[in-house]
């Protein structure tokens, strides 16, 4: 390992595909998706998941390595999961893709200013500062983040945390789903599989 780079090598991204999946917000969904990728040998570059504009549905952004499998198979296999409602391959779309990173960099009174200069070039925010270290927060596409990381490396990176990519198609097009559920069914889907709060009867069998 080259100590000056902390072993960090940005991966080549020649064949990365961005896939957005709208999934039921239910326990186990993440495991189902992760387990599918593992079993089929699809390599995940990153996977981000969070609430969406639709109640009860989450949006997952998955960056897959297209060399490990044709994106079409990835899409079809995802669709086979009952909890996956819609899959959009954004590979051929004009998209805005962003990632957030926090980088904790070693610094001292002598070189802190250099680092702050670098941060401002990358429009990174300083979110914490201490005598011997500084946390930079940067938002951007992967190239920008890789660029900043590279610039920080000579100072020594103590910790690096990246969120993985989220993406949206430019313009009015969306990956949303317009299909409300009947109220009675939605009510049960909301709790299905979720833990029950409060005291439960104890019984050992």
């Amino acid at each position: 390992m080259n100590p000056s780079t902390n072993g960090y090598h940005p991966r080549k991204r020649a064949n990365h595909h961005t896939v957005v999946a709208i999934v039921e917000d239910k326990p186990g969904v993440l495991m189902r998706v992760a387990s599918l990728f593992r079993r089929r040998g699809f390599n995940i570059e990153s996977l981000t998941v969070g609430h969406s504009e639709m109640p009860g549905l989450s949006r997952m952004t998955i960056v897959v390595d297209g060399d490990s499998a044709p994106v079409e198979q990835v899409e079809k296999q995802l669709y086979k999961l009952i909890d996956v409602i819609k899959v959009s391959d954004l590979s051929n779309e004009d998209i805005v893709a962003r990632e957030l990173a926090m980088i904790k960099v070693r610094c001292n009174n002598v070189n802190r200013h250099e680092l702050l200069d670098i941060a401002s070039v990358f429009r990174a925010d300083v979110v914490d500062i201490a005598t011997n270290s500084i946390i930079l927060q940067v938002v951007g596409d992967e190239d920008k983040i890789d660029g900043l990381i590279k610039m920080c490396e000579p100072y020594g990176i103590r910790e690096l945390s990246r969120t993985g990519r989220i993406a949206m198609v430019r313009g009015t097009k969306t990956t949303t789903v317009h299909e409300p559920e009947p109220e009675r069914i939605a009510r049960i889907h909301q709790t299905q599989g979720r833990r029950v709060e409060g005291d439960l009867p104890f019984s050992s069998d």
């Binding site: 326990p27 186990g28 999961l81 009952i82 049960i188 709790t191 299905q192 599989g193 979720r194 833990r195 029950v196």
Partner: peptide, 10 residues
């Protein structure tokens, strides 16, 4: 698909 059922009403 599989289910873990946590409430009788489900």
């Amino acid at each position: 698909h599989n289910y873990l059922v946590m409430r009788p009403e489900e």
